[in-house]
Design a protein around this nucleic acid. Structure first.
Lengths: 306, 306
DNA sequence: TATATTAATGCTAATTGTGAGCATAAGAGA
DNA sequence: TCTCTTATGCTCACAATTAGCATTAATATA
């Protein structure tokens, strides 16, 4: 309980750097999509966040709109070759423009390359109904009694097609991991014979990515973070497609507009654009003041009157 | 961007360990309330969470009901005497019983000893209206033009008495820190002359505590974590007072009951208790199954139909 | 033994928020 | 001109939440 001298470990930073390219949500990777960008924590930065920001901006030559800490892992298998324990601190970063690719096989990959069952924009993904769910079902059946009931409830709670909750992306990945349905779950000896579709990543980078996606999906609902991914001027249609890309779900157009407008998130620029295909759309810009004006929403308690 | 060999740093763990004693929300501290319990991260634990759990349970001899990571700090001033950079990972822990005090001046302290402006159970705290708000107002006035308007909006957004949001506890503390109204904000040379009421802590422990309180206040609204702080059997009145203690606000009794019941969070034990003073109350217990049955709530997007 | 007091509970009117969809407008291109 | 596509306005039904009133059942006390 006392503050003894802690043992040295090595600290590394991981970044889930997100951008929207076309209507696809993408993440910056290296080694052909197998790794998230990571680097050592340099001691010459005043704070972790400043370190991440400087490091990403130096590498990509683009400003980072928004940075948020995701999680710190120190699982035992994370050991460097020198015998240090590795603690890795991961961050979510949102950027507006395409970062300079080229070096170290830097490249953007769609979220849904890694989590194909998470993209419901064209209805329930075939991969989910045809492959993932049946495999999970077998996993449930493989247990008995209490364990079976518990597995059953977890699958129902996280994968229920009739009440899909896009925020549970991390929990779904973790469940697939536990069920031994993703390659990352393999022990050195026995590989996963027939994993579920979806590109794997090295180490636990796919878990970190799932953490970032889940956090982002939750956050877009109560904080105006989508705008960090948008160009300065945009149409409401573009904005809607951006949210849809992140959430992996289609939204009701009129209700979406009502929501955005009544929250005073945007203002008209006065200009219009005609290259959306149909009727020209008004251009809007984000009202940055809103961030200061209203702190957060969050859900509510049944308060008593004064 | 490459995975270079990171530099060694020391990792320490901090815990915000919460219990309800009487109707007061309390936190475990040492050194007479000046520090949160902290310790080194021992390398013989498989995960960080396991490390925290083992360490707290060893020290307090009581099981930890719930553990959640709060945040990882590595600000530059956190340097050990040996020259290592210190990374500190903080956790929120909920416990049902009074931990064994005694050693190292371990003791429980009310949340509101540190944040007296956060307890609205008896209406707007005098300290807030008489001291904190006027001091913030001076701080706003001290700036000019744009800076002044920004300060104004931040104070309004976080401290507005007519739309108090209990979840903003951390942001309020940080604002007071920035405004130089808490002793922790003092540079070595010039101490804060007349800080706002509220007990300070050493290092950034009060900020960590604020992080824990804010997280807990947000979480009780969408996950059944209060039960980790309750005895096995309880009345709905007790449950309500527990939530009120954490949120620092009074709730509407009938609506609170409706909420709890319609969410199937509890079930009657069949027994009654008569020591509540008035009419005897039914005893309830938490339905643990619910955790598996329903994943989470979260807020909503205006989805389109299938 | 009345009588005030404290809780627990049941019920409902009023308001606000959300879901779903019809209808119309305004351009591009065949 | 007709058709297609997207943008935009508006409304109705229903669900959820807020704020109370009213009643019941015990204990404490005059």
């Amino acid at each position: 309980m006392m503050v003894a001298e802690p043992r040295p470990v090595a600290v590394e930073l991981n970044a889930v750097l997100v951008a929207l390219i076309g209507d696809e949500p993408q993440v910056l990777t290296l080694e052909n999509g197998a790794l998230l960008p990571s680097g050592p924590f340099e001691s010459d930065h005043p704070t972790l966040q400043a370190g991440v920001r400087a490091w990403v901006e130096h590498q990509t030559h683009h400003p980072l709109g928004y940075v948020e800490q995701l999680y710190t892992f120190a699982d035992r298998y994370r050991e460097s070759t020198l015998g240090y324990r590795i603690v890795s601190i991961s961050y979510l970063g949102l950027t507006r423009e395409r970062a300079a690719a080229g070096q170290h096989e830097l490249g953007w990959q769609s979220f849904y390359r890694y989590f194909p069952w998470e993209d419901w924009r064209e209805g329930p993904p075939k991969i989910l109904t045809r492959t993932v769910l049946p495999r999970l079902k077998s996993w449930v059946e493989a247990a008995s009694d209490d364990a079976k009931r518990r597995r059953q409830q977890r699958v129902e709670g996280n994968f229920d097609v009739s009440s899909w909750n896009e925020e549970l992306a991390l929990q779904r990945y973790e469940l697939l991991y536990e069920a031994g349905l993703v390659p990352e779950a393999s022990r050195p000896r026995d590989a996963i014979v027939d994993p579920v579709p979806g590109e794997p990543m090295r180490y636990d980078h796919r878990r970190i990515l799932a953490t970032g996606i889940a956090r982002l999906r939750a956050k877009i609902k109560y904080r105006p973070v989508v705008f960090e991914l948008m160009p300065p001027d945009f149409t409401l249609g573009q904005l809607q497609r951006a949210v849809e890309a992140l959430a992996g779900r289609l939204l009701h157009k009129q209700n979406f507009r009502r929501l955005v407008e009544q929250q005073w998130l945007v203002e008209e620029t006065g200009a219009m654009t005609a290259d959306t295909g149909g009727r020209p759309a008004k251009l809007y810009r984000f009202r940055r003041e809103i961030v200061l004006e209203r702190a957060v929403a969050g859900s509510k308690l049944p308060l008593a009157r004064a």
